[in-house]
Design a protein around this nucleic acid. Sequence first.
DNA 1: CTTGGCACTCGGGAACACAGAGTGCTAGAC
DNA 2: GTCTAGCACTCTGTGTTCCCGAGTGCCAAG
Lengths: 337, 337
Amino acid sequence: MLDERKLAVLRAIVEDYVSTNEPVGSKALAERHNLKVSPATVRNDMAALEEDGYITQPHTSAGRVPTDKGYRLFVDRLSQVKPLSGAERRAIETFLAGAVDLDDVVTRTVRLLAQLTRQVAVVQYPTLTRSTVRHVELVPLSDRRVMLVLITNTGRVEQRVVELPEVVEESRVAHLRAVLNACLDGCGLSTVPELVADLPERLAPEDRPTAATILSVLLETLVERHDEKIVFAGAANLAGADFSVGLRDVLEALEEQVVLMRLLGETSTDTPSALTVRIGSENPYLRGTSVVATGYGSGDNQLARLGVLGPTRMDYPVTMGAVRAVARYVSQILAAS
Amino acid sequence: MLDERKLAVLRAIVEDYVSTNEPVGSKALAERHNLKVSPATVRNDMAALEEDGYITQPHTSAGRVPTDKGYRLFVDRLSQVKPLSGAERRAIETFLAGAVDLDDVVTRTVRLLAQLTRQVAVVQYPTLTRSTVRHVELVPLSDRRVMLVLITNTGRVEQRVVELPEVVEESRVAHLRAVLNACLDGCGLSTVPELVADLPERLAPEDRPTAATILSVLLETLVERHDEKIVFAGAANLAGADFSVGLRDVLEALEEQVVLMRLLGETSTDTPSALTVRIGSENPYLRGTSVVATGYGSGDNQLARLGVLGPTRMDYPVTMGAVRAVARYVSQILAAS
DNA sequence: CTTGGCACTCGGGAACACAGAGTGCTAGAC
DNA sequence: GTCTAGCACTCTGTGTTCCCGAGTGCCAAG
């Protein structure tokens, strides 16, 4: 059904359309790509491709435009991920190397990715799941409030103010802190809930309500902040692009953490570093846009996801190359720190 | 030159134009606002106003549109800040009261302001200047790296990884931490530089290089992070609006901290809670947009700025009311915590 | 100073024609 | 059977023209 030449035609259509943003006709196609066949033959192939739903024409007597299905075939079988140039790689490396802490790594990454792809970049903060507790700090703010600070080995810091059920002296806070650190230091975050389960019982009765309050906030922090924080950059790149969905909807989605999270999608557990590409209507949350994403993180410490969002009409090979490269470099940086 | 009626005409033009987004003509004006004069008279006034540069006409034989100068006069002399409705106030209060930490306060504030004004909201993080040190923590990450965590009384947490010039044992880190806390606890952030100036000399010689490194990072943190962090929300509200400058430029400015900072402007030291309004070309950094901003923070603890950015054609009284109200509520919340 | 009247200007929409790109189809060539 | 050339057809987008109406500026009278 789809012989070699028809695939070549589809590839040519996608490439031309992506670069010119205009429906591509049979004549131009036969000329620009040396297909060694006449426009008429190309037209026949086009008719077949349209029959199968890979391309479509905006109106009778206009050129053809790839459908989502067409892009899908292109991405799966007709294109190769395009590696970055040496200059680009060096730029990435030096730019990311300058980061001073986790926040900075994430901020730099998302900006970098936006600039490289000229799309909107989205980066999820590394989750706490695989991290371990480096230190727990309790800082008295007033006699009924303490600040709980949780520092992990990945350099992440979580903070929460805890309202205490009763007035607590500083010495008792210090005691609790010591107990907490003795109990949790170096332990994986995922094991924290079980580790603290029986903690109140091991304390003096008068400390239990306070301890319980603090622990509940601690657990809340672990669960809620788990993998919620997501940042984006490069919204300015949306200005030129045209989506089938309104620009307003895209901007709204970007500011909605939950939607962003869904857009990035789940990391497949078996091949976490594989590139995920969702094209147009394949994406149930924001149609008319495409998302190229991947997991990142060091080795067995698969942490989070990053990617870019753009119009369906996107240069997939280049974008995929950039996303993959950035993910690798960030993973390296994180592994080193 | 500008008698009472001419001012009334200008006010009417601004109000009509803001609500309809269409150049307003003499006839419609004389009807809608009961000016008790004929269109011809209004025309004469309009001619005078145009002569003085308060209004202009897009083309011959079209209605008039306010100029930046016209909006300025309107804001300064012809309008009253419009207070929020009771329902809106209650909504603000409950929404802000749910915040769990400083990050959360800022995030909620910026979203709230964006929603209330239907513009882009911009909020600067409270600066550290007036804050005091609550606690300094040094957490060993490896034998040549420690994490420096600075906790302030406003609930802000700054963290930085410090690369040490030599291998340092944990006990020495603990010692340094104790010294640092003894020295800085409760002190104003602005006094930190002088307080630590002679600190290395008071330590054992072998501790001095390490201490110097850590202190330099600490000072860097204070200076660099001083008042740089700015967040925005409501970019989706830009979708409908039309700026004389391109949408792309606005989005780019929003992602550039430095530009945002300049847009918000300086807090005037004598009346920090005054509303600042910059209209169109008055704003050297991003022409074609208006900014309504104010300082916020509790009492003598004037901390930072917040505001909104929108098209020059903006409902100034309502926007000013919202900005002022939100600033007050946030100040309250911050004072209470 | 205000008002009614009047001639004038100009933008924007409707109607129209037209060139050009692109298509589908069919008949002939390889 | 597959490819090619030719041809008639169908659109969109663009340029032109025309006209309506909103709005103006000016003038003379109240």
